[in-house]
């Protein structure tokens, strides 16, 4: 049985904003889409950072006007290729103590985001897939 890869179970597509997206708009996108993090991508499609719930709640009760995504984003984004086995991706998540990995593909114009692998996707795999496999 071939090992499950990141590409098999990831969320396809990413919810993204621009570095200069107003913070109030970022909060609205995250709340409306129920994602736990938003990717910050520049006009060339290059990934510039990530904004998590933690980054956002640091701003709770402060004035969000005149502040932009780039002011609060975490510039280091850990990424993996869709061909990486899930078992390897999980090791990276545990070692780095992170809840999600950005999935990127190399294109002629550079690395492009194609999806996100989160703990949600991994837990879905754990909800009994192995029981089915034992029965089969």
């Amino acid at each position: 049985m071939a090992e499950t890869t990141v590409g098999d179970i990831m969320h396809k597509g990413v919810i993204a904003c621009k570095p200069d997206t107003p913070l109030q708009e970022v909060v609205r996108i995250v709340a409306d889409t129920d994602v736990h993090a938003i990717i910050v991508v520049d006009s060339q499609g290059e990934v510039r950072g990530i904004i998590s719930h933690f980054d956002l709640i640091k701003c709770y009760g402060t004035d969000l006007h005149d502040r932009k995504a780039q002011d609060i984003m975490t510039p280091q984004v850990i990424d993996v290729a869709p061909t990486v086995p899930v078992s390897e991706a999980v090791k990276i998540m545990i070692e780095r103590d992170i809840h999600r990995l950005l999935v990127t593909e190399m294109t002629p114009s550079g690395k492009r985001p194609v999806g996100v692998l989160s703990t949600t996707d991994v837990v879905k795999q754990m909800r009994g897939a192995r029981w089915v496999w034992y029965m089969g």
Binding site: V27, V30, D32, H53, F54, L56, I57, Y60
Partner: peptide, 10 residues
């Protein structure tokens, strides 16, 4: 949860 607070911010 963190999501509850972000929804409140929105």
């Amino acid at each position: 949860s963190l999501s509850d607070i972000v929804r409140e911010m929105a």
